[in-house]
Design a protein around this nucleic acid. Sequence first.
RNA 1: GCCGAAGUAGCUCAGCUGGUAGAGCAGCUGAUUUGUAAUCAGCUGGUCGGGGGUUCGAGUCCCUUCUUCGGCUCCA
Length: 649
Amino acid sequence: MIKITLPDGSVRDYQKGTTAMQIAQSISEGLARNVLAAKVNNETWDASRPINSDSTLSLLTWNDELGKETLWHSSAHLMAEALEALYPGVKFWVGPPLENGFYYDVDLNGHTLSPADFEKIEQKMLELARQNNVYVRKEISKQDAIAYFKDKGDEYKLDLLERLEDGNITLYTQGNFTDLCRGPHIPNTGFIKAAKILNVAGAYWKGDEKNKMLTRVYGITFPKDKELKEYLVLLEEAKKRDHRKLGKELELFTFSERVGMGLPLWLPKGAALRERLINFMQKSQLKAGYLQVATPHIGHKALYVTSGHYEKYGKDSFQPIKTPQDGEEFLLKPMNCPHHCEIYKSSPRSYKDLPLRLAEFGTVYRYEQHGELHGLTRVRGFTQDDAHLFCRPDQVKEEFIKVIDLVLHVFNALDFKDYTAQISLRDKEDRSKYIGSEENWEKAENAIIEAAKEKGLKTVTEYGEAAFYGPKLDFMVKDALGRQWQLGTIQVDYNLPERFELEYMGSDNQKHRPVMIHRAPFGSLERFIAVLIEHCGGKFPLWLTPDQFAVLPISEKYNEYAQNVLETLSGMELRGFVDDRNEKIGKKIRDQELKKIPFMLIVGEKEEAEQKVSARVHGKGDIGEFSLTDFASHVNKLIENDFNQKLNQ
RNA sequence: GCCGAAGUAGCUCAGCUGGUAGAGCAGCUGAUUUGUAAUCAGCUGGUCGGGGGUUCGAGUCCCUUCUUCGGCUCCA
C-alpha cells in the first residue's frame, strides 16, 4: 500500500500502482470525468500513470492552468494527427501549449496551408477526437526511438533526439499518431470537444533565421463548444480595442506612405493627449529632482563611435547624412544618452553635484525591419521620456529605487496594474554581444537585482535580453491581443561613463567615474499611448482625454448659447467643442457616444433660460441639469478623486 | 529581412467562373428647427495600391513592386 496526500491534507491509502484517475474515481465519478492530468510530488503526470510510492497528489482539471496546458498540449498532438492524415509526408518539429491555445511547427513537405483549409483541419481534429483515442505513454530506448523516426523520415524529431539522454525518452501515441514527447497528456482525445485553427505563420526552425522556415499552425481547443464560442467573442471584442482601429476612429494619429512607413503623424487630438502625458511626466520629474535638457535630432558619427552604438548598430541604422562640402557624417539620433553624456562633460562635476538627473523628451529614429513595424508599438521614429542619472557608485541603489517608484507612480496613475517586471541580463552563452568588463557587468546586474528585491517587485529574469552596454529592468505590459510590449525601462550602465571618460571630483580630491542610469517610464510615448488606448478601449481618463465634453444644441436656435457655454467652460480649464451641425439631438448624441466623449451637454430653450446645461455621461445617460460652475467643479472633482484614489494605492 | 494573407470612394465593405465599378456612413446642397444613440431629398466622390504582361476586353488571370495584417528573426 502507498499513502497519497491530497491538497486538503487528508491522507488515503491505495494499492501500489494506482493511477490518479483511479484515485479520482474513488473520490467521485464527477471529478474523474473532469480530470485532465495530475500533479504528483510537484511533477505533472498523466492521470493514467501508475503511482508506485507515497506521494502528494493534486488532480488537475480545466480550471487549473496546468490542466489547460495539458489539454492544449494534447490538442497539439491531435492537430498533428489531423495534419498528417490530411497532408501525407508532413514532418513535425515541436508543438507546445501557449497561454491561449497551442501551436505546432511543421514542415508541410510542399503542401500549402491557408485560412481556407482551417475548417477542414478542425473537422478532422474533431472527428479524431470523437474516437476517444487514449494517449499511450511508452518509455523507449534512444536507439529504438531513432529507428522509429528514421523509418518515418522525420529529421526534425531525430534532431531533437540527438540532445536527449537515453533512458529518459518517452513516446506518446494517440490513434495513428506517435510523437516524441515528455508528456503529460490528457487521458483521451474525447476531452477535446471544440477546436479552432486560429492562424498560420512562418517560423524559423530553432528560431534561427539561417534555418529553413517551418509553418507554425496556431490553434485552440476547449472541453465545451460553448467555451470556444465565448473565446471567439472575446477575441472580437479585443480587436475592437486595437489601437490602430481606435486611433483612426478617434482621430488620434495616422500614417502616410509618402511620409514613410513607421513614421506616425499625430493628429490634433492625439497630439493634445501626448502633450498632456508629457506635462504629467514633466511635473512628476520636476518633483523628483530632474533637470530638463534639449538636444538636436542628429549627432556626429564620432559620437556614436565613442558610445559603441556605431559598431553595434551602424549597419542596421539609417545611414549617415553627409554635409555637402566636407563630407562630414551625421547620424539621426537613435537614442539620447550620448548627447546627455556630452552635457555632463560640459562642465567639471563635483561629488556634491551628484546625482545629476538630465531629462529630455527626445525623438529618436531607428531602422526597424520592414516586417517589424506595427501600428504605434513598433515604429521608426518615436519620442522617449528619456533621462540619464549620473551618480556616485554609492548612490546607484537608492537612485534606482527612486526610479522604480517613479515608474510605478506613472503606471498607477494610468491604471496599469497588469505588468511584468523583467530583469534583463546578459546571454549566459554568448558574451561577445556586449561591451564592457566582466566586473562592471557584475556590479550592474547585482544593483538591479538588489533594487528590485528591495522594492519587493515580482520579477522574471530573462537572460540575453540586456542592452549591449548594460542590464535592464523592463516593465512589460500586454496589448489587447495579449502581445507583450516593453514600456518602462531602467538600465544601470558602468560602460558609457568609461567610454565617454566621465568624471567627478570626489571628497578625496581625486577623480572618480560616475555610474549612469538610463530610464524611461513610458519608454516610447508612441508605444505607451498604443497600449493605453487598448487598455482603456479609447475611453481615456478624464484628465487625459482629448475632449472632455461636447455641447449639443437642440436646434440651431441655441448655437449661440452653446458657444457661450463652450467659452465659459474653456475659461474654467475644461476642454470641449460645440456640435452645431444641422442634426437632430438623437443623432448628435449617437455620434458623440461613438466618439467616446465623456460628457454631452445638451442645451435648448430651457437650459438657455436657466443658464444651465443638461449633462449626459458617456455610456450611462442623463445625469440632470447643472449650472456651468457646478459642472466644472463636478468634472474637476472627478479628476481629483480619480488621481487621489490611484496614487494612494 | 523571412513565411503566409490582404489592398476596391475619406471610413466599413459588396462585386460569381474576365464583359468597361456598387452600397451604407462621411462630405456638399436644399428642406426641416428638432429634447437624450441615425430627419428627409438631391449631389459630389474611385486611372479598383503602383508598374508591366496575357486577352478583342482585366477590379477579376500572370509577373513585379509598394503598403498593411498574422507570425518568425531583430529591438540601443
